[in-house]
Design a protein around this nucleic acid. Sequence first.
DNA 1: ATTCATCTTGAACATTGTTCATTTTCGAGC
DNA 2: GCTCGAAAATGAACAATGTTCAAGATGAAT
Lengths: 205, 205
Amino acid sequence: MNNVQDESRRDRKKIARRVLLIEIGRRLIATKGLRSLKVRDVAEAAECSIGSVYNEFGDFDGLILTVNRETVQALTARLRAVPADDPVRQLHGLADAYLGFATERANLLRSLFEHRMEDDRPFPEDILAMVMEAFALMHAPLVRLLPDRDASDVALLSRMMFSAVHGIISLGLEERMVAVPPERLRERLAQFIDTHLAGLGVPRG
Amino acid sequence: MNNVQDESRRDRKKIARRVLLIEIGRRLIATKGLRSLKVRDVAEAAECSIGSVYNEFGDFDGLILTVNRETVQALTARLRAVPADDPVRQLHGLADAYLGFATERANLLRSLFEHRMEDDRPFPEDILAMVMEAFALMHAPLVRLLPDRDASDVALLSRMMFSAVHGIISLGLEERMVAVPPERLRERLAQFIDTHLAGLGVPRG
DNA sequence: ATTCATCTTGAACATTGTTCATTTTCGAGC
DNA sequence: GCTCGAAAATGAACAATGTTCAAGATGAAT
């Protein structure tokens, strides 16, 4: 019938269902962890058959990878929203934003970093590229703080700094015994960044 | 018959099999990754029944956790073997040792950090404690380098520094696209530690 | 040799990912 | 409106894999 830019009724339904399945997958991973995610639970929650999940994503990994893809996109959006006025504040803001995301969506972030492909199937390159892109977001402020440094040097530095922040956060949130409260972690991260900047020769603000 | 300190023939056989199962589990995880580890593969390789694996470890997670326990022990042993002559060299040595371990036994280390319990079963406290202990090994050299700092402050600093090193290594080895060669990572880590020490006010050696 | 506790076995079961022949849906052309 | 065909949806059946347990095998003690 109406055929406004290829958006037939069928397509709309298909898209709506796809979105629903992704949302359910995300909710289940977020609440019960990746390991507890089952095809049947997803299908039941979406009130559709198991086969439909496979029609939409090829296999179960396809759904997981789609959720992970959106997770890294959400993370990137949040990181990009950090004000870029002052470079030092921006670096602190990026670490804070990452910590906030990791605290609020711990299981989703874990799914992104811990999911492995079966056997030796390759990990999707686009997800890797997006993660790398997110981890490169410390590059701009560092360029401003280190104008005399070699460009490729700063690129390495920025990824390294972000990887370090990632390690501190993921292990800090993991240590359930010590139960480091996020507020403490926030302080530690700020201290870490300041120390590192001082080591790089950036005068304290 | 002979009953020298409870070591009956039965016990010896039992222990030998347990060791065999653990070795097979470790080998399979190391070569094909945790996700590809199957009970039946382990039983077949050990030339015993599936049930015996369950007798020995309770459930399949039990075997994985035992392998992980030994992985963190091996890691700790390697880290403890780093010479403690000069504190700065020791810190570099610890990072190098960790990098070496992560390079040679990538899948085993991943298994240690990525394995999750089913549902909400608690993660074994002893493994967490051992990981924490390993991550505290930067404490001693840092105490020597920062004699005037508060003790608890240095404790935090050392764990943070090791967590950062962990993040740099695990992500550095992950980026299959860029394929950071371990030798490059080694240089980066050394640079990172030096920068951080400089930020902490340690005069360059 | 007998006995008994313990260990071992593997078939059966339970859970969960995957396939595919069949049925249903829905838009297009008449 | 009706018919037809392509696309989608279905869910039973299958495959892979974790788990249990009744029955048999083993070995230490007497």
